[in-house]
Design a protein around this nucleic acid. Structure first.
Lengths: 213, 213
DNA sequence: ATTTCGTATGTTGTATTCAGTTTTGATGGA
DNA sequence: TCCATCAAAACTGAATACAACATACGAAAT
């Protein structure tokens, strides 16, 4: 039996690769992306690359100029801050709604306790639980549009997808996650909001440190 | 001399037409959209229709099922409320930021005074000024991501694009716009936020009335 | 009668071709 | 030398062609 390899549409994978390349500074602000060249490099036709371009333009990573190709936008401190500020606003809103609506947090909290007990936290373990926590909160917010926005921001510069974090960060985040989920479990919206705001704000400061100037 | 018709990409116009048709209930929840058929009807090829589908899926209006076509999502009260709640959250944030950052409101306020004096407010006049006001506030918020989200919501069910409004509504909105811009002019963020929240909340209630059950 | 397997059909995902626009670069004149 | 003009190359937007996937239907077997 083979791997249950769920093959995504090519346009999605192409978008991921280009996105990663932009965050990795392989492309820089002002660079023109050659549709044909990228299709050749990736070994696909121009169509899915074109569709990926449109997604990336929606995300604000590139700009599409009619008949004149795509240029990479600046991934500078302002871009990162703008993204983070939206994540603060929306994740905080989601946390408050989750606390208000009620959400089962027992399994997540027990997984957090296990992680808290570990002497060393590995990146993959952290990221996996991190994703589960946030997505469960989005679900509990019970607003499809909010969920959709947060899903989109997850591909942005404000998550572990873009930069490696320190073990210190993982430990601090774990404690913050416990704060957030505890507040949600107790159905204290304002407390949940405050905890989430603190969580993502610290994360922002942490990441902005890596983008000097 | 011909019209200075700035021709947008076909995919944009196609998306607009389908969006309008969905809001007009020409398509209903669960309906399957036939890519080829729509391309034929609109007299374009499948490519731009396909790209339009992807945009509409991003907006949450339709769902793309791999190899199984697109289905129209329910434009029910929850959908409208979800959209409006996000608009309240984001427009309020933008108004607060605009007040904080400072924004020149003189021209907009004088246009509002003229409109306030009119005995009868026409739809196009109102919509034109309405759009100018909101977009100027978005600009003044100085957050690109926020601006982008609000731009997207403008195509949603929470603006005049989807339903006709009463003259009464235009008059009430005009007064509310004056409140908002006055607060911004005086650089009172909280006051601006409150005024914006009230403005869009009333608009939501007004539109939800037209979607009974 | 029910279930399973295989084929047929329709629809999408991807590739390729076509057409129109923008850019580039050369050429000629001031 | 500098500028304008025009042709050719390159690239994108749109149209068409091709391939793969999923569902539906029907026949055969239990």
């Amino acid at each position: 039996m083979e791997h249950i390899k769920k093959s995504l549409p090519i346009r999605i994978e192409v978008a991921s690769k280009i996105r990663k390349a932009i965050f990795a500074r392989e492309y820089n602000a002002g660079d023109e992306l050659n549709l044909t060249a990228i299709a050749l490099i990736l070994g696909v036709s121009r169509t899915p690359v074109r569709e990926a371009f449109q997604s990336l333009a929606d995300e604000g990573l590139i700009t599409l100029r009619m008949n004149r190709g795509a240029v990479v936008n600046a991934i500078d401190r302002k871009f990162i801050r703008d993204n983070f500020e939206m994540r603060i606003l929306l994740e905080t809103e989601a946390a408050g709604r989750a606390a208000h609506n009620g959400m089962d947090t027992t399994d997540l909290l027990s997984r957090l306790e296990v992680m808290k007990g570990k002497s060393d936290i590995e990146r993959d373990d952290y990221e996996s639980l991190n994703e589960d926590i946030h997505m469960r909160i989005w679900d509990a917010s019970d607003n499809e549009k909010l969920k959709r926005y947060l899903m989109g921001l997850w591909n942005g510069p404000s998550t572990g997808h873009s930069v490696e974090e320190s073990s210190e960060h993982y430990r601090a985040s774990t404690l913050e996650h416990i704060d957030i989920l505890t507040a949600i479990a107790q159905q204290h919206p304002q407390q949940a909001r405050d905890a989430m705001t603190a969580h993502i704000t610290r994360s922002m400061i942490n990441i902005l440190r890596k983008y000097p100037e």
